[in-house]
Structure formats: structure tokens, C-alpha cells
Design a protein around this nucleic acid. Structure first.
Lengths: 347, 347
DNA sequence: ACTCAAACTGTAAGCGCTTCCACTTTCGCC
DNA sequence: GGCGAAAGTGGAAGCGCTTACAGTTTGAGT
């Protein structure tokens, strides 16, 4: 928020003139580089102060060949957890003087252009989930843009950060089986995202461990509409006397919540007739009745970690790719019928 | 994601050399400015293509004295609605070729520096709620940085965008009074944000219209913890036989949800013994029982509008300040005890 | 006092792009 | 075929900053 004498923003020349020093010295004082006398420092500080001078980032970026900014590419911002993730990222960025430029792909009229554009104003890019196809990611890599993948399968040359999925899903599923469930269904499309595919892997593994065959996943969108629709088909199946599931392992909470409430409102008891679990631990999960058993991801930490990894790459302190997997937390509530005592938390 | 012959990103010089034309022509082709022959255009396009050339934004910004970027300053990202707001903003920005740089104030080690920094890499700034104090906003204005305020009281020289609050609050409160409530309480601190203060104004007005005196607001934080704590004091009051409220008009849903569930879990009936309303219509509001009556703000549209206003200011197509107020929607559910039929929606 | 190094400061050359201005083509038309 | 205007192109000057490099002080050591 600089104010120059002319009304136009003050430049380093204005400061230099006012301090009666060269722009080189001004730059050295302001950036804290190189040796400067105390006197010069004081004069510059005062002049800068008086002119309310702020160096123009574009000029600095051009000169130092660095932007001091991170680019984030997100598929969209739906769901409550992006906020937490972003918050974690922002926090780290703020503490380390990095700006954050966000680009959302959903509804973007020209994704390719947007990403190129982003790449030219930041030092590196974080890609969340499948916001970008592999070709575009490779493109970025080819152009030597540091890339960190979040909630995405590892890619050669890129760092990745995600939360553990398969293990938690297996653990959760096993728990349901332990409590006598015999006809579990996985709800959600594994092809939709890496995370979901991992969850299905864990689900299937738990079943196989019991000598059961894993049924194909119900490929519905991870939304409330998807959950409602799926519940309808379950209700149909029950009504028509066909085989009925006695448990739904849903790929996220929206799905689970919609499915569960649809079922209960049609007289199907949860958890007695059918158990339901979700993923993410959204706020509604603890306000619905019965409370929704779910898996909590350390969203803020995922964000923080992604920021850190990207910075390491940008500054070059690390060159070997690194794939972080953060632990999740099983949150037991009543919807899974295995809960003793509220809010027991395992793992 | 440019790739130059040397491994370093290609510059406009590389393209010019390859196309056997001057950089001036290359620039004209790429930016679509000025007259260029079809032949030249083709050569440049091809060369740029082959080199995977992307103009460096910093250089362009420096030359054109514009960043083609908007800065957003947010207090934090808590709550589910920032996501919708941001989504609306991003969408508009993406469609209009503007980048979005986000800065979160909460937990920021040096807010002042962050804002100055932001100001020097964008063409204008949107400030959400009370992320910034008035002095800082004035500073920005003084430096001729276009500023748009969201959910904030209008400030001279700044545009503002918010959603209607007082009227909806009055309408909601009146409705409760119409249904026989006589001892309503407003929960939330009006000093905490402009929006909340407006809601309290509407609440108080409704009471005065009935010749009732508006009680002082319960100044608790707008969080689940705040709601729980407040509910405890209500429970105390009831137990000790002191006057009890028969309705809580809460400043947001988190507060309302926590208060409501605390009350019901202690045997206080909602809506029979006491009615509860919230604000924002978060997802949990429709999963809790009874469903939470609340007020929905057009978050995405608020975001879109803010983006548009800022752009108008940046481009100078409008110079007079403008204050937009968007309509809200009363969402009636069972917690207010005045609902006939699910999901009736008024206004 | 004198030398030499260390401390400080200034000059100027970029960083990669846009754009004014001048210059050369190319047309349209009499 | 020749003329003027329009179209196309290139040279070069910035935009505001950083940073060699060179130049000037300063000060310690003798």
C-alpha cells in the first residue's frame, strides 16, 4: 500500500532520493542483504516509512527469478474438509512468507490455460486429488515445476501426501464382521479417486481375510443425492425380498448420512437392521442420530505437510521424491452398532 | 510450464529466434494485440507450441503495471460456508482470467506485513468480515488499492457486499412471537461481527414492535463450545427455578446445534419447551433432530458478486462506491415449532 | 603518518515482457 | 503505373527491482 509523491505508488527510486542514497543501498537495507552502515539503515527505514513504500513483487520476482508463492490446484471446494486442509496450508505459508494462489478446476472454462498461467506465477504447485489428469501433471514435471500431489497415487518425480486409507478401511470392515455382519456393501466409486479406491481395497481385503468374496462396489457419486439414490435401491431390494445388505461401508460422510437417513425414515433400523459407516467426520456426523461412525483424516496436517514438501522442493533442500502417508483416526459412534460408550476413539 | 532449449524456461526471445521474427511481433501474436500477418501468427504459434512457451507473469505484470490477480483476506476458514463463498469467487475469477491469492489472518505471525505483501501482488483486495481492522483498511484505501468489503459495515471509498440480516432476523423473531413465545433470547456477540450485530438489531426490533424490551445478547463465541456453555447456563437457570427462556435466536448454526443438543440431552424439549434457531444452514442443520430452523445466505453469489465489484473497480468501469445487499432465505424446520410441513421456505 | 584490508556505497547491467515510434511492405484506387 | 493509406514489422526504451563489480571510505596496525 505504497503512496508516492505523485500519487502513484512509491518506487525504490523515490526512497533512494528521499534518503539521499542509491537504490542499491535501499535494496540492501530493505532485504537485509549485504553490509550497510547504521546511519544508512536508519535513513532508508525512515524514508520507506514516510513514503509507505512496499517493493513491487513483480519487479522483485523478475529480478530474483522466484515468486515466493505456492500454487494450489483443487478440483472444487465442495465438502467441509477442504477448508481445514486449506487452513493448514495457509498457516504454514503465512509463517514462511509464501503467498498462496488458488485455482479451482471445477467449472473452469480453460483448465489447461489456467494451470499454465498458475505455473508462471508460482514456484511450485500442489495438486489435490484428481484435479488434473496425469498428462498435465507430467507436463508440469517436464517443465521442471515442482509438484506435490495430495490424496493422489504417487507419480514418479512428484512428492505426495495422503492419509492412510486401506488399513483404516480394513480395520473398520473387520470390526463390522467381528460383530456378526455378513453382507456388507461398499458404497462409492473407487475409480472416482485414489482415496476411494484405497478404501475399497481395504474393505475387500477384510472380507477376503474371512474367506468372503468382496462384492463389487456400488458406483454412485459421493454426494447426498448419491446416498439417497443408493438407499432407494436398497429399499427396493428389501421390499422385493431379494437379498439385503446388513451393512454399508460408505466412501464418505455425505453419502453415508443421506443413505442412513433415507433408510431410517423408511423404517429400516440403523444400526439394528443395517449398519452404516462414512469417512471424513463432518460436523453432521455427530449431530445425526444415530451418530455416524466414520474415519477422520488429519486435514490441517495434510495441508501443512504438503506446503512443507513443496517448499523443500522449491528451495532444493531435498531432491529425492517423498511420499508421506498420515495416520487416520477411527471415530466410533452408534451407526455401526459396535460402539461401547460414546466417542471411543481408536488407533 | 515452459521448456527452453537450455533446460531453463523458454523466453520470448527464444520464441522470436525460432520464429525468425522480433519479440515485438511475438508479443503481439500471443496477446492478440496489434496487427499481425497470418504468416507471422502461424510461425509464432508453432514456435511457442514447440518450446512450450508461457509468458512469465512477473515480467508481464511489471510491463503492463497490472497483476491480473485478486487478493482475498479472510479471518480464517472455519465454518463450512467459506468454501461456498470461495467457490463462487473462484468460479468468477476463472471465467475472467483473474488469479486469486488468499491470505488468512488467523494465526498469521505478521498480519500487517502479509497484507502489504498481498497488496503488492494483486490489483485489488477483498476483505472478509473483520479480518482487518479499520486502520488497515484505510491504509489500503490511502494507497489507492481497490477494496471490497464482504460481510462488513460499509466504509467510505470501499465497495461492500453482504447479505440481508436485520430484516430476516426480525421476520424470524416475529414468527416466533406470533407462535406464542414470550421470553426469547439472542445468543451471540453483536460486537464480534457486523453481521451478528445486524441480526441482533432485527431481533430487538421485532420485540420492540410487540412492546417488549429486548434482553441483552448472550455474548458467547459463535462456536459449538459457546453453544454448549450457554446451554449449561440455561439449564442452571431452569433448575434453580429462575426465569427460563422459551426460545433461543442463535447467531449461527454451530452455536444453535450445540445449544440445542445439549438442552435436549438434558430433557429440555425442542421445540416444545424451548425453540431454537440458527443462521447459515450448514449441513448438520438438516440432519439433526429436530431439524434446525435457520437462515440461508447465498454464499456463492456473495463470492461472485464480490469478485465482480472488485473487477469493476480495478478496471475503472465504475468509480462510485456500491453497497450490495443480497437476500437471504428463511429455512423452516422443526426446531422453531412453527413449521407446517417439512422444508417450507419463505422469502 | 602510511599502508592495506575491511566496510560501505554507487553504477550499471540485467530479469522478460509490452509498447511507442519509425520504418518497410503491401494494397486499393484513380 | 503511381500514389497515399493501411498493414505489418523491428528497434529500443522502459516497468521496478537485485546484484555483480568497481569505487570510495574508514579504520586498524605499524
Amino acid at each position: 500500500m505504497p503512496t508516492g509523491p505523485t500519487g502513484r505508488p512509491a518506487t525504490i527510486y523515490d526512497v533512494a532520493a528521499r534518503a539521499k542514497l542509491s537504490i542499491a543501498t535501499v535494496s540492501r537495507v530493505l532485504q537485509g542483504t549485504g553490509p550497510v552502515s547504521a546511519k544508512a539503515r536508519a535513513r532508508v527505514d525512515q524514508a520507506a516509512q514516510e513514503l509507505n513504500y512496499v517493493p513491487l513483487r513483480a519487479a522483485r520476482s523478475l529480478a530474483v527469478q522466484r515468486h515466493e508463492a505456492h500454487g494450489l490446484v483443487l478440483p472444487d471446494l465442495a465438502g467441509p474438509f477442504y477448508a481445514d486442509w486449506l487452513m493448514g496450508y495457509e498457516r504454514w505459508a503465512g509463517e514462511h512468507g509464501q503467498s498462496v494462489v488458488i485455482t479451482v478446476m471445477h467449472g473452469n472454462p480453460d483448465p489447461r490455460r489456467s494451470v499454465r498461467d498458475l505455473a508462471s506465477r508460482v514456484d511450485g504447485i500442489v495438486v489435490h486429488g484428481n484435479a488434473l489428469d496425469l498428462a498435465t501433471i507430467q507436463d508440469l514435471r517436464g517443465a521442471r515445476v515442482p509438484v506435490v500431489l495430495v490424496a493422489h497415487a504417487p507419480v514418479a518425480g512428484c512428492d505426495s501426501v495422503r492419509s492412510e486409507s486401506a488399513g483404516s478401511a480394513e480395520q473398520l470392515t473387520t470390526r463390522l464382521l467381528d460383530h456378526g455382519r455378513t453382507n456388507l456393501l461398499f458404497v462409492g466409486d473407487p475409480d472416482g479417486s485414489y482415496d476411494v479406491s484405497e478404501r475399497y481395497v481395504g474393505f475387500a481385503k477384510a472380507l477376503r481375510n474371512r474367506g468372503l468374496e468382496a462384492p463389487a462396489p456400488a458406483r454412485v457419486p459421493l454426494t447426498e443425492v448419491g446416498g439417497r439414490q443408493f438407499a432407494e435401491t436398497v429399499l427396493q431390494a428389501i421390499k422385493s425380498g431379494r437379498g439385503r445388505p446388513d451393512g454399508l461401508v460408505c466412501a464418505n460422510d455425505e453419502l453415508a448420512l443421506a443413505a442412513m437417513t433415507t433408510l431410517t425414515s423408511h423404517g429400516v433400523g440403523v444400526p439394528d437392521d443395517i449398519v452404516v459407516t462414512g469417512w471424513d467426520d463432518v460436523m453432521a456426523a455427530r449431530y445425526v442420530s444415530p451418530g455416524l461412525t466414520t474415519v477422520r483424516q488429519p486435514m490441517a496436517e495434510l495441508g501443512r505437510t504438503a506446503a512443507e514438501r513443496l517448499h523443500e522442493r522449491v528451495t532444493g533442500v531435498r531432491t529425492r521424491a517423498r511420499n508421506d502417508v498420515l495416520a487416520t483416526q477411527l471415530v466410533l459412534r452408534d451407526s455401526c452398532g459396535t460402539n461401547r460408550g460414546m466417542h471411543a476413539v481408536t488407533e
